[in-house]
Design a protein around this nucleic acid. Sequence first.
DNA 1: CTTGAGTTGGTTTTT
DNA 2: CCAACTCAAG
Length: 714
Amino acid sequence: MDNTLSQQLTPSQKRAVFHIEGPLLVLAGPGSGKTRVITHRIAALVDSGVRPYNICAITFTNKAAEEMRQRAAALGASGGAHISTFHSLCVRILRRYAGSAGVRPNFSIYDASDQARCMKQAVKDCELDATNFPPARMLDAISTLKNKLVDAESFRDYADDFFSKTLAKVYLRYQLILNERNGLDFDDLLLRTAFLLDSWPDVCSELSNRFKFLLIDEYQDTNHAQYRIASALASQHGNICATGDPDQSIYGWRGADIHNILAFETDWPDATIVKLEENFRSTPNILTVADSLIGHNHKRKLKKLLPTRQKDKDVVITASEDEAAEAGSVVRHIEELTATGASLNDIAVFYRVNSMSRVLEEAFIRSKIVYQVVRGVEFYNRKEIRDLLAYLKVLVNPDDEIALLRIINTPARGIGKVTIDRLRAYAARNQLSLFEALKHAERIDSLSKNAKARLAAFVDILRRFEKDTAGPVGPVAERLFEESGLAVALRAAADQGKDALENVNELINAAADYDRQAEQPSLIDYLQQISLFSDTDAYDPASGRVALMTLHAAKGLEFENVFIVGVEEGLLPHEKTNSYEDTDELEEERRLFFVGITRAKTGLYISYARYRTIRGQLLRTIPSRFLFELGCSFTEPADHDDDYDHEDHEQDQPGRGPPSARFTAGQLVQHESFGLGRVKEFIDIGENSIVVVKFNTGQTKSLMLKYTDLVGPF
DNA sequence: CTTGAGTTGGTTTTT
DNA sequence: CCAACTCAAG
């Protein structure tokens, strides 16, 4: 390696970079130059004679992979190394070894909404009530099982209580539906790959010998399936380098198992551990606050962030009246920053939930501050985009019934519910897929002559594209857009069609981009790739705009100035995370805040609003407990006189809830012994009024106002 | 069969 | 508040 490059590294970074053989764990705090270590390490490997072809680096997002590719190239290790996410790697492996893995290579990847459809069907097929067995809950449970590599059959053999047995039935059914449609959900990609590597030793050793050096970033957020895949890939040589920081583990809810990183030394007894504790990113002002906050987590190894920068601006904590005022305060601070020379590129605003972006966007538009909402997947959720993609999906995978049903009457071509039902009945009777039945429409007696003709016309459209699945994607997408009738329908739809047309154009351009970049463009590959896009992938660091994103999306990024808004009880920590008790989930919320804070280099602005509109209702909030854990002189400005002022003010305005009500549904309250909860119902009968509260402990209580110590609004 | 109005229910974070 | 679903009229 180039001497000047290695001179930029600290001794511990050098150790991590040049420790070539055997297992290596890099425990790296935020801002420790971890990414740089990995890219330098790739370069060092190549430098020491390793063929790039034998290197596999796994990152957390496609964006991170892209950046790493570029940086590695800049260090002279260009081309050949496989750098991607776990999911992308699994797609490649599954396509290559489809036969052994028990999948067909043209599988569709099912996203959350596709999964929801399949699950609804599964619950219905099992003759269960959707209220007792909500599809979302079922999916959650199944996802957890899949992440632990428990497939439907093993779970069925294992289930002993009523709920588990029911869940097992649903799981089997759900999986059957997926299989029939040749669809894999995100978890399947991992599970199938893990099973493949486990049950085919020759495949496992072939891959392990191909990837002689394995590097895995953000190891603290790997789940069991990923852990097993990683172990299998390293099985032949043990050249596994994992990097991560237990304090930045924020995906426990998705099955990430912090144990993976904690047990690395046990898994690989001859492992070398390198710690990167210096922080090159943030000022001591910020690190002190971060340290103080994360110190409130009990289940962690003690670790200090060692600052290397000089003191600079103090951390600013702002209390605003409501979310609009909070957004206004963000705008004012941004204007101050830009007035002193900061670029909008250097500014980011983080929030806990996506819905919070709206009020910020409105404020930015009013103040003419340009911004980007980092939400890449949103584009692919637009109706017109999903429609066009559904056509492409059906071409690649005709068994994808979800896609087929989406387009069969889009744009409207007179194929309604009755026709589809008859088609389905025929398919079921003859053990055919819906698409097969469609091709036989002529022979289905129950169909009217008209219906037959319409179905034939539809099949004809698809038939014209049958041979186009191999080559470039852009031209196919463009032609299909026209010939499917989507184009005509959108052009007819006056004003809102205009946006839609632009979006479709963007999609076609993106597809053409893909054609240029891919070594061997194909529709299958394209569709599978875009299914794995993440929000962060859309982040453009040179856009000259303020970046708005969730705290989760902020992972791995850094900004000169960071705003974190809505730091309130119920939001951060989020109320859904059973966080009144000192639980693991609460600790994860704290880590999430920690991740947000440590993204900031120089300016850190934390804020909360005293009132916030939640589901259309203006509610009193409680400042987050985390604010008190920051260790800086934070005093809650709320005092009682202010409260009453506001109450009065509120009562003057009609439409803000009944003035006599002391509680309104949805409101956050605190009880001396039950803790935090939300008002479900307030039965206002004067002196004997009753409040029904659902507490975070899970229990719902009806409390009589005059006997209870319910505190709220705060 | 299509469309629009009305109702209902669900609401975190994401590969 | 919003999306997804239901139902009735055209």
